[in-house]
Design a protein around this nucleic acid. Sequence first.
RNA 1: GGCCUGUUGGUCAAGCGGCUAAGACGCCGCCCUCUCAAGGCGGAAACAUGGGUUCGAUUCCCGUACGGGUCACCA
Length: 554
Amino acid sequence: MDDKLLNEMSKLIFPDLNDSDTIESLEEMFPPRNLPEGAKVTRMAPSPTGSMHLGNLYSALADERIAHTSKDGIFFLRIEDTDEKRKVPGAVEKIIKYLNGFGLFFDEGATADGDLGNYGPYRQRMRAKFYHIVARKLLLDGRAYPCFCTEEQLEEAHKAQESAKDNFGYYGKYAVHRNMPSEEAIEKIKNGEKFVLRFRSLGNPVKKIPFKDSIKGNLELPENDQDFILLKSDGIPTYHLAHIVDDHFMRTTDVVRGEEWLSTLPWHLELWNACGFKRPRYSHTSQVLKFDEQIGTKRKMSKRKDPECTLEFYYTAGYPRSSVIEYLMTLLNSNYEQWRSANQNADYREFPFSSSKMSASGALFDIAKLNDISKDVISRMSADEVYLSVSEWAKEYNPEFYSLISRDPEYSKSIFSIGRGGKKPRKDFACWSEVPAFISYFFDETFSVDSNEFPANISVSDRKAILSDYAKIYKTEQDNNSWFETVKIISEKYGFTSDMKSYKANPDAFKGSVADVSTVLRVAVTGRQNSPDLFAICNLLGEEKVKARITAQS
RNA sequence: GGCCUGUUGGUCAAGCGGCUAAGACGCCGCCCUCUCAAGGCGGAAACAUGGGUUCGAUUCCCGUACGGGUCACCA
């Protein structure tokens, strides 16, 4: 290979570079981070498409935890905007907003207005020169070459490979420009022919590389033989080059990314070597899957088919963000639930996160489990917290309900404090959108009684008599027992036993029990057969309102 | 189709050659109880499959089946 020709070619390909633009200068500009032993540097590297789904949050959480459970670890945001077509305005802000909303914060990287940190810029579009410097070195080393294939030619090759049952791609005899004489290439470039810069692979896929992934464990990968593209014809790098350059010069220690990258890992491995950089550790996370009823199998969650896949869903349904995090933590680390039950009130950040505890196979998303976890999370909140969160949710997604509960905040807080606190708190809702229906009877505007709700085994005349008697004697009581005594007295008067034990032993001996009478009262006061403690509800509604509601049904 | 990878109850999962194969969610039953929720107790329910290796395989090896991923000038 003629150095002079290569040099000439590199000047043509990289007119933006001069002699002082060297790898060494980059190494100097972005020196290794001065961090304590064991500190991990991870990154979230989304393309700015603006779509944020559960999978993004899942892997961001893994990244964030891995960085922040190490002492002085760093979690940064890099925007992979090399593909102009996929760019959506405002996406960066959205990504940051959503992650912050879920309690995940970046230590450095792209922000809504500019960059933060010494290893930027953190947007790939602005790093063109860095990629070119590395690409030029590769070219000069003979590890990269221009390729003039047109789209049509590549398509033809693909078809030929198909009929020959060869592997797809640009390699071996299909790498037609790999050995083009430099003179010829220079000529073509001078003529303004379009070209891409390809990697010159030296690998042999028959040979296997043993590889240790932090999540998947020991793997065996074939060596790469693909002359994949480093720079597109517009001079913008592909993900592959950008990944190596960025994660090297941003001094990433742990690359955490989806397992869909496993198949191109050999490309990256060979590139790291060709560049002479020390590669980071890799953690390939498994996907969150979804059971598809129609096909009857598991599949990747999809934004279009699965509403619960978008982060927006959790906002509109009003799941506490901490519930979603809590659920994802159980998916991320198998021993998390065990730790949680031993540390009920601890912050999840105190959990010793470990990538080796991450599952190698994909987990099915299970909303029932999320609900259970969320009920638990909410049950640990104070009434004030619940009120605050519900208001915040309602303000945005249910304005009518918002005006109801904000009319008298103290009253609303009292509603949420029923059955709260203590050893066995109620677990009534998993998300805030379940609240309006659940507490509707506390507000006259949303309270109504359907007489079909009254127990059928009590005659209408008995029912009316019970209610009108009760309306006369009802008064606000100090404690549950004395309140229930009155209910018992009324029950006995109409032949409904107050002794549940004997009723259960011999139900036919009685007209009914105090349970039936309670149900009558409950329906009159709340409009439904099931509710939290009736005594507490009555006290909250107040004597006047309780009497009015009972009278209305008598 | 090639390559990579995975497969423990319905779901999430412990388990690293020897156990009646944990636990959680869901489901069912019982208890508690004025209903519901919660709580307590109990139950049904699993090592994909065929060959090896071994005194012994859920655990190790090979094949098969079935998932998942990937094979772009997208990331």
